[in-house]
Structure formats: structure tokens, C-alpha cells
Amino acid sequence: MKYFKYFALIVFTITLFFSCSTKGLIKSDFDIKNIQNSEFQNSDSTILFKTEINIFKNEFSGITVIKPTENQSHRIVFLNEVGMKFFDLEISNDTFIVHQMFEPLNKKSFINMLVSDFKTMLFYEIDIDNSQIYQSQKTKYFVLKSENKRTFYYLNNDFYYHSIIKKSFLRTVQKFNFIYNPQNMFKEIYIEHKNINFEMNFERI
């Protein structure tokens, strides 16, 4: 029984080791200059999205306005179809301002999640210079694996970001999917939290 315990521990450790490694991926000498910046990174135009937010079985729908502002920040306003604002946030690399928050949503934990999600979605967190590039053996997808954070940026065949996956020690905790139109502009963005009941869907208007 004692030996079985040791055996189980070794198997667990090996499984853990391999699950945390970049399994199925090989280091690539792909030039990072080929990576296409997202619309959020290189455009100064405002984008409107038809939006659905589901948080702990509460559903909110409406329109999200994402507008780049001066000082390299973004203004994000989510309002319902009738025009009532749910929230109005301003996000930059190292800070954020809550201009308005609908009272039932005005919880510190929700605001922090929202800010973190938008920072990832708007590519504030990406640090290409401190990332390593891998190529999948099975597919042509490339993965940018951040050294410090367990965040994986997947590129499609045109070298645009098609998903972002955030992992905890053992499993995926968050997934961002980006769907593009033929002009390589955002058509749809989907954010899913795996550990809590929180998802956001953005369809370009």
C-alpha cells in the first residue's frame, strides 16, 4: 500500500509536468514581425458590438462602444437597447476609471473581472518581446507563450490572434475567441470563464 502511494504520487507528478509543458508544440524561429496587430492595437476608430453578458445567471444585452482615447487608453461603454448605460469604463495599461456603473453591477469583484477581461481582449497584456513562439506539430497555428504569465496567444494562418487561453496550474480558466470577417476585422469576440458562470459575447454591428 505504501509503495502504491509513492507510485501514484510519481504518476501524478509526471502527468502534472507534462500537462504544464507546451505539449505538442515545438519552438519556432518564426519572425514576430509577421504577427498582425489587432484592430484594437492599430486603429483609432470606434467599434460597436451587439453584446450579451451572462453573469451568475443574470443576462444583460445591448450595445458596447469601444473607443480608443488619447493617452493610449480605451473607453468602453455598455448600454441596453433603450439607451440605459450599464457601465462606462476607461482602461489603460496600468490603471482604470469607472465613469459609471449600474448599481446592481457595482461590485468590486465584478469590476475587477471586467477590467481584467477587457485588458486581455484589447491586448494590453500582450508582451511579445518577453514571449516564446511555438508551432504546433499538427496544425499551422503558432502560440505565443508568455514567460511570466500562463497566457497563450494563438495565431491563425494569416497571423492574426484567433484565441487567447489563460491557464491556472492545472487547467484552462479562461478562453477568448476572435472571429474575423474577410477583411480581417473583428466579426465576433467570445469570452468564457471556465471556473465561474461569466461569459461575454460581442458581435460587430
Binding site: I63, V65, R75, V77
Partner: peptide, 15 residues
């Protein structure tokens, strides 16, 4: 016809 005026936008959102 509905117009949503936001000070951050130069053009109203029309529905």
C-alpha cells in the same frame, strides 16, 4: 427613430 448621444462619440447611435 432613436438617437443615443454619447459625449465620447462624434455621431449618435441610431436605432
Amino acid at each position: 427613430k432613436q438617437y443615443k448621444h454619447l459625449s465620447i462619440l462624434t455621431k449618435d447611435i441610431e436605432s
